[in-house]
Amino acid sequence: MRMVFADTLLELAKQDERICLITPDMGYGILDKFQKTFPKRYFNLGITEQNCMSVASGMALNGLKPYVYSIIPFVVHRCLEQIRVDVSYMNTDVKIIGVGSGFEYGAAGATHHGTEDISMMRALPNMTICAPGDNYEMVEIAKLTAKTKDPTYIRIGRHNHGILNHNKIELSKASIIEQGKEIALIATGNMLPVAYDFAQELKKENINPTLISMHTIKPIDKECILKLINDGYKIYTFEEHTIIGGLGSAVAEIIAESGQKATFKRIGINDKYSHVVGSAQYIREQFKLDIKGVIEQCC
């Protein structure tokens, strides 16, 4: 998925000379084409995440469109205060690209896992947050966000499945992947294919859930969720992220203020770091975020 992003950004950069790419020494093998095509617009500023974010802010104030690319904990948490002041508060057109959402960098350990980034970024005013669930969403989100002037965080994960979203994508508009009834599965990022597989399992039991891709987590599609509540859906959220402050929390906030009752469950990481040694998939299994674990948690 990160390669799809890099290819899309390269195409966008051919059309928009304001686009620049900053990396604190990440993206080996991923950003090479951009670097070769636009050497003057590619900046490896060294392992200096805080400074990279301030530099991006300065470039944006000066009319450019900088993208800052790194692994999530380094491009979000390491420089969160720079994001807060130089990007969010100053409302600069900086695009923050975090790769390795959830447990994607499984074997690398929790220092490299992106499991609390949505919560932190959601709290920042002016910030748009997107998490594509398939490569089609990745391409469309890259293109759509390139047109905005808003501070934006794009959370990139894995892709080892087919295209699930065949809708026209609009930012802040949930995509209905499958229309069903009574049960709504709302997924973001890496969990979209898992939720899709779960939906297929439910169908075998003659249960037809509605499957929704929430590719934009902020501003969230409130209207879509309110409709689900009004229509009496039982709502499940799926995210490879802590259940505190992410997609599940965003949906819970809407339910809580709707004045109506809804049956609701958050599927995600239950307020824990991984100390598991193993691949991403192995860790997902331990956290019950694979299809088997999701069935166990939901049924």
Binding site: M53, S54, G58, M59
Partner: peptide, 10 residues
């Protein structure tokens, strides 16, 4: 300083 660097690079 970082913002200044961004000004200069741009």
């Amino acid at each position: 300083l970082g913002i200044a660097e961004g000004f200069v690079l741009s």
